[in-house]
């Protein structure tokens, strides 16, 4: 680069050998080569332009080596000279560096290596934004999922409660079987003196004492149950039942038994009618007589 100031001189020198081809290079081989070889690019080119035409005109007159001929000479035949070897070594270095640089630049992982700082910052910003957006989206989705889960939990809970209520109501309505502790009461009425109202009294007494499920001779007793007299026997909800009347009652037996046995109560009244009443506490009673569910014709639920 220090050759810049020498360019004019250099140009002159270059022009000289062109016009008088052979003598100057032979006479002064070192000097002219020193500079013109490459540093003075700009001026040399400018100088080369006008120069070429006359030079070629001169070439037509006496045949100096043209550039093409020199090139061919240099390439073929191969000569092992000091210059060739040195240049080969340098070019080897150049090729090596070139290949290494190209290889390292085209590595897949180094797509960002060549990027400028601003680009990198921009890319980083974009990534941050994207991360933020995705994070927001993730939070929203998670919230939604939570809501759905909790609502489905609620639905399951509601379903469970409904099922439980259905069971409770089923026991009340007599549509499902029930089991639990309670008592059995057997009324032996060989003389046929027991009437429907006495049985109804017994049922009322049992209900008042907290009976939860009652069946009489295979007929479930529910809210709408009615007792009728029919000759010597009794009808329950239209089903005729014969003595002995067996009550199966689920409830707290400590309450039920005394309630039946109180003075002037059901048992005494029945015994006054010549019937034999047996009350037993049982740990496990199964009330398995069922009633059909009957859709009410007129009554409609007013809730909801």
């Amino acid at each position: 680069m220090s050759n810049q100031d020498e360019q004019p001189e250099n140009r002159l020198r270059k022009e000289l050998p062109e016009e008088v081809p052979s003598p100057p290079p032979a006479a002064e081989p070192e000097r002219p080569h020193a500079e013109p070889e490459r540093p003075p690019a700009e001026p040399q080119r400018v100088s080369a332009e006008p120069e070429r035409a006359p030079a070629e005109g001169a070439e037509g007159a006496e045949p100096p080596l043209t550039g093409r001929q020199r090139l061919v000479q240099g390439v073929w035949p191969p000569r092992v000279t000091r210059a060739q070897l040195i240049v080969a070594v340098l070019l080897f270095g150049l090729g090596f560096g070139l290949a290494v640089q190209v290889a390292s630049n085209s590595d897949s992982d180094s797509a960002l290596r060549g990027a400028r700082q601003e680009d990198l910052v921009r890319i980083l910003d974009e990534l941050d934004d994207r991360t933020q957006r995705l994070e927001d989206e993730k939070q929203g989705l998670e919230k939604q999922r939570q809501e759905l889960q909790s609502s489905s939990d609620q639905a399951a809970e509601a379903r469970r409660q409904t099922a439980e209520k259905e069971k409770q109501l089923g026991i009340l309505a007599g549509t499902v079987a029930a089991q639990g502790p309670g008592i059995t009461m057997t009324i032996d009425d060989t003389k046929g003196t027991v009437k429907a109202d006495m049985l109804l009294d017994a049922v009322q007494e049992l209900r008042a004492a907290g009976a939860e499920a009652i069946q009489v001779n295979g007929v479930r007793v529910v809210a709408s149950t009615y007792f009728t007299d029919s000759g010597k026997s009794v009808g329950v909800d239209g089903n005729k039942i014969d003595q002995p009347y067996r009550f199966k009652v689920i409830g707290k037996s400590q309450d039920l038994e005394p309630a039946l046995n109180i003075p002037g109560g059901v048992v005494q009244t029945l015994e006054k009618e010549q019937a034999t009443v047996t009350v037993e506490r049982v740990d496990k009673i199964v009330v398995d007589a069922l009633r059909q569910v009957k859709q009410p014709d007129y009554a409609r639920s007013s809730s909801r």
Partner: peptide, 28 residues
């Protein structure tokens, strides 16, 4: 690498001009 390329092109041009010199090439 780019600088070396420049040197190589300069050297090639010098060769075509018939003024190539290996010492100059090496130094440059």
């Amino acid at each position: 690498v780019v600088a070396a390329l420049d040197a190589v092109f300069g050297g090639l041009r010098a060769m075509l001009d018939g003024i190539f010199d290996d010492k100059v090439f090496v130094v440059s």
